[in-house]
Nucleic acid binder design. Structure first.
Lengths: 211, 211
DNA sequence: TTGCTAAACGGAATCGGATTCCGTATAAAT
DNA sequence: ATTTATACGGAATCCGATTCCGTTTAGCAA
């Protein structure tokens, strides 16, 4: 769905009006999501785009398809940011800064977090994409910090990623500042060792596993 | 709503059939929530209770009223558990253990977490109750650990509570073990100090505020 | 026991929003 | 200019939530 290019077989390309509508819908959806959250009625988006609901459903059969299309760019940008941090900072600092960048991503894109953790089967593809894109990035940052001896070696990247994205998900309550503090707290947890020596085991409250 | 006792004025007491129905509905709802999550259709609950939807709505006008009634006992039990830990453990250990107890609470009661963080205005009363009950408990545990010099002094209890409950909220993904590890990580974050000395400021990735 | 009445009951009716369906319109290939 | 696969719009349908109201009943008093 939403193929902008024809396959190299003899299939027709996407019609111009369709391509135009897809763009319009995406723009409208981004606006509506920002204003009313991801749970906003589909009709609202269709109306704002000046399009029938049928047209919207043709291009985005499931709501997550729409969200994913909007989020994709942001997620990619966040992934890229890791390279910059890694190049210009000490490993732990790069890690800490990227985690905050992650908070920005989740907190800014209203509903990304909610959609991500909804557990709804229809929303499968969204977490799949986000996690597959970001987990390796975090893994690399962790590896570097571990190699530098700055953090412990027993953390599962995806697990940490999920936890941080949850903490960062905005609610009626806490603003982004709270999310920042709590994510920073987790990074500090990575740096904590009983006697400030890494690689000791027998830790009272942890039993983490890598990968 | 759901007043089991008459007020001391001359108001009539709740009728026996009503009281009976309320009990039946609560039992049915608990079952359905466990089986199908908090978003299960109201009709399902009414049917299982052998009651019309009208009756259900009479006693529980909003879904959170139902959830709250079910959860309340569990939350209270969790709050009480803190006293036991505080009595029998070192402060940090009491803190760590209670946090894990909290994970149990959220992870076990399917949908408590989801309902808690939904942000839906209709669900207001639930987070209000949960946080008002648990925040002081956590605050006490933190105070004790701080007094013992085991953790830093700059953490906001409610903020930490929210973050942990979010991390512990079960999803399609991570099981309870992951939640445990991540919450333990946050506790470790509390114990972390740049050079393992508490009360130093100028920390790279934190800027917490108390209360 | 027998009314009497306020409270409670059940479920039909109503109200959205989501999703599907299909007759009409049109881009683009010939 | 003709053809036809695509795409379009929005009416129709579906489904769960919520309301409404005629009927039933618990509890009180005579």
């Amino acid at each position: 769905m939403v193929e902008h290019q024809e396959k190299d077989s003899g299939i027709r390309p996407v019609r111009a009006d369709a391509r135009r509508n897809i763009e319009t819908i995406l723009r409208a959806a981004a606006e509506v999501f920002d204003t009313s959250g991801v749970e906003a009625p589909v009709k609202l988006i269709a109306d704002k785009a000046g399009v029938g609901v049928g047209t919207l459903y043709r291009h985005f059969p499931h709501r997550p398809d729409l969200i994913k299309a909007i989020i994709q760019k942001e997620v990619d940008a966040c992934a890229k940011a890791a390279l910059d941090f890694a190049a210009s900072e000490q490993p732990v600092e790069a890690l800490a800064k990227w985690m905050q960048r992650l908070v920005d991503l989740v907190a800014t894109k209203r509903g990304l977090g909610a959609a991500l953790h909804s557990g709804n089967a229809a929303y499968q593809s969204l977490p799949e994409y986000v996690f597959s894109r970001l987990t390796p990035v975090l893994r690399d940052l962790l590896d570097a910090a571990e190699a530098a001896g700055s953090i412990r070696r027993d953390v599962n990247a995806k697990e940490l990623l999920i936890a941080c994205m949850r903490v960062a998900t905005p609610a009626s309550e806490g603003d982004i500042v709270q999310a920042r503090r709590m994510v920073a707290l987790m990074v500090d947890g990575l740096r904590f060792t009983e006697l400030n020596e890494c690689d000791n085991e027998q830790r009272s409250s942890t039993n983490a596993i890598r990968r």
